[in-house]
Computed example of a mutant assay.
Amino acid sequence: MTSNDLVLGLLFLFQTGFGALGNSFLLGLYSITFFIGPRLKFIDMILFHLAFVNDLVIVSKGIPQTMAAFGLNNFLDDMGCKFVFYLHRVARGLSLCTTCLLSIFQAIILNTRSSRWADLKARALKYTVSFCFLCWVFHLVAYYLALLNVNGPNRRKNITESNYFIYCSATIDAVFNVALYVFIISLPDVLCVAIMVGTSGYMVFVLYRHHQRVKYIHGNNLTPTFSPETRATQSILLLVTMFVSFYSLNSILTLHIQLGKPTSWLVHISAFLASCFPTCSPFVLIVSDSQVPRYFLALWGRIKLRVL
């Protein structure tokens, strides 16, 4: 094992541990709050789901990639490769859907003062669970078809018939792969990204208009105060920006890997980008979302009372 492999292994190990710690903290906090703490808001349930699927993304990509970076390339058989590939792809797609749902829901919350938007919020609350269920069903079915091309590293026939993903291989079938990637996977992903960009632009417009109104009413010398809705919107805008940036770069590299002859470094960079958003997102919420510290302080207060 070279020094470069050691650095890569330590980098993936740090990213995996750091991301799993942050998402697991949010999962534990929301779970305990749900049972013994203050009542969770509906948007917190969406954040709980986001933390859960992000944990799956990190575990399914980070752990195998860390072992491969340390030189352990043959630790999975055919079934292991299929399971890890399937779990990562499904979790990655669900992370995209959940982030998209989060941006839509927050854009609706910003406009609940009018009766039309209040009615839309009520409908969104009613159909959110159904939407999440449909996302699970769609990704579980869509990526099941992709398992036909995934094999263990020992099943690799030759360099012209498969793309090598370090610890697994994927057989190339140009017509099938292009049709699968474009029509079943890419189009829904592009639609979700477009919705996130649109809702983010709308939220920026609403916040800018609100800022201008406050500035006009109170004058230029008043220090602006931010409501919880504004702080939540800003944190979600940051999440969406991070997701779109990392997702776009990773998608470009993934497409190049599937259609070209990738190097091991290109595969490692793609894997690192795939785990950047799941790793960073929980800490964005912990630092910028006022609800997370509030839940933590409320639980800490209850624990102190029970101890005393």
Rank of each mutant, 00 (worst) to 15 (best):
M67Y: 00
L237Q: 02
Y247C: 01
L305K: 06
T160I: 15
Y216N: 08
L21E: 14
N149H: 14
I32N: 05
I257S: 03
R89H: 12
K261F: 04
D5G: 15
A91V: 11
F133I: 15
F272A: 07
L134W: 12
L10K: 06
T263Y: 03
L308P: 14
S60G: 10
V244S: 00
S200N: 05
L253S: 09
F83E: 13
H139C: 01
T233I: 13
L29Q: 09
K261L: 12
L207E: 04
L238T: 15
E161C: 13
I109K: 05
I172W: 14
I172L: 09
T2S: 12
R113N: 12
D77N: 11
S60N: 09
G37V: 08
I195H: 01
W136Y: 07
A51F: 11
R306W: 04
H256I: 14
L6F: 14
L134G: 05
D289I: 04
F35M: 15
W300S: 11
Q65K: 00
K121N: 10
T2K: 10
A20K: 10
L110I: 02
L13K: 00
V141P: 03
D78K: 12
P228G: 13
T66Q: 10
I236D: 02
S24W: 03
F133G: 06
F48G: 03
T230M: 13
A124N: 09
N250G: 02
F243W: 07
G93R: 01
Y167S: 06
F48V: 02
A91D: 06
Y202P: 00
F165H: 12
L27H: 11
Q106A: 05
N74S: 09
S281A: 15
I252S: 07
L101M: 05
V193T: 02
V182F: 09
N177E: 10
F176G: 06
H49S: 13
R89F: 11
P282D: 00
K126D: 06
S290D: 13
S290W: 02
A179D: 04
G219M: 12
Y164P: 05
S251N: 01
W117L: 07
R39G: 05
K41D: 01
G260T: 12
G37L: 04
I109L: 11
L26N: 05
V287C: 08
F34R: 13
A91K: 00
K261T: 13
I172E: 02
K261W: 09
F14A: 15
L237N: 03
C192P: 01
R156H: 04
L87S: 14
T33W: 03
F25M: 08
N54L: 02
P38N: 08
W117T: 02
T2C: 06
S95M: 06
V141W: 02
S186V: 09
C132Y: 06
L72G: 03
N221S: 06
L147D: 08
A20R: 05
C100K: 10
R89E: 08
Y86W: 11
L191W: 00
F183Y: 15
K126H: 07
A170Y: 02
Q291F: 08
F226H: 04
F133R: 02
L40H: 05
V57A: 10
M67F: 10
H139R: 05
K82L: 08
G22T: 04
V292I: 09
Q106N: 08
L297K: 13
